[in-house]
């Protein structure tokens, strides 16, 4: 399936992935995957659990090296960068981990202040203002004295989000942001992702398997299965697709290209084999 190319490729796309091939041991995780992540929009990468969606985020961030293929972020081929340049680029990328990954021995305030203190020489007064602003954006300014252990899962993720935007990055990657949330928290996260993306001019990449939630905010969706891009397009395109893979995933059908039954011998034979 050929990737969508807009104009001259890197113009409209912040991240381009070309012919990516990645293996873990003998298992092929990605086989000839190509995608374009458009600037300023929310792109979702979806697929059944275990297809390596988190691995893709790590490849984009340069934490893992592809076996073949190219990944370009903001015009720079990320795996050809020197360590110092890679770190510079990472300052402009934010990532929200599934569990939030807050530093447990620091307070909420210190967590959000961390990237500011490490990478800038701003005064503590300036930092305080910035931290409170970021916390205000996610609705947790009043909680800045709490410790991560005192936060609920949803609150922890919002603090992590505030931390991810602390340095005003150009893009944010969300790793399974909807997992295990109650509907209210889910609604808050959805709202925030869309709001921040538009208000701050970010490019967002959301990795998820929650089709209903993601379809509400994504501008473009890439559906990955068996290490390949199965389908891509706007949520409407996916909903109306005739492809069996897409249909099974989008509509949550129990059986289809992803089989219900784990492979095994025929039923009758297995039952009668006992004697």
């Amino acid at each position: 399936m050929s990737p969508v190319t807009e104009a001259s490729g890197t113009d409209g796309s912040l991240v381009t992935v070309r012919d990516l091939r990645f293996l873990r041991g003998d298992k092929i995780i990605f086989d000839n995957v190509s995608m374009d992540i458009p600037r300023g929009k929310i792109t979702a990468i979806m697929g059944p659990s275990g297809t390596g969606k988190t691995t893709l985020l790590r490849l984009i961030a340069g934490q893992l090296r592809p076996h073949e293929g190219e990944i370009t972020v903001d015009g720079q081929r990320i795996h050809h960068l020197e360590r110092a340049q890679l770190f510079e680029l990472r300052k402009r990328m934010g990532m929200l981990f599934q569990s939030g990954a807050l530093f447990t021995e620091l307070s909420v305030f210190d967590n959000v202040a961390f990237p500011l203190r490490e990478h800038t020489r701003l005064s503590e007064t300036m930092i305080r203002i910035l931290v409170l602003m970021k916390l205000q954006a996610v609705g947790l300014r009043g909680a800045h004295r709490l410790m991560p252990a005192e936060l609920s899962g949803g609150m922890a993720r919002r603090v992590a989000l505030a931390r991810a935007i602390a340095l005003d990055p150009m893009m944010i990657m969300y790793d399974e942001p909807f997992v295990g949330q109650d509907p209210i928290a889910m609604g808050m996260v959805l709202n925030l992702i869309r709001l921040l993306n538009d208000a701050l001019g970010l490019t967002s990449i959301v990795v998820s398997h929650d089709i209903n939630e993601t379809a509400q905010i994504a501008d473009r969706i890439y559906l990955i299965a068996d290490g390949r891009v199965v389908e891509h397009g706007s949520p409407a395109v996916l909903r109306d697709s005739e492809s069996p893979w897409t249909r099974q995933f989008v509509h949550g059908l129990p059986d289809g290209p992803v089989p219900f039954h784990y492979p095994g011998p025929p039923y009758r034979e297995d039952l009668l084999a006992g004697s």
Binding site: E88, M93, M95, F97, S99, A101, T104
Partner: peptide
């Protein structure tokens, strides 16, 4: 625990070397 809760990975993502820090 820091490794299991991805704190070390997130530090790397924030361009801070966990070995130094």
């Amino acid at each position: 625990l820091m490794k299991a809760t991805e704190q070390l990975a997130s530090m790397e993502m924030m361009a801070v070397d966990p070995f130094q820090r």
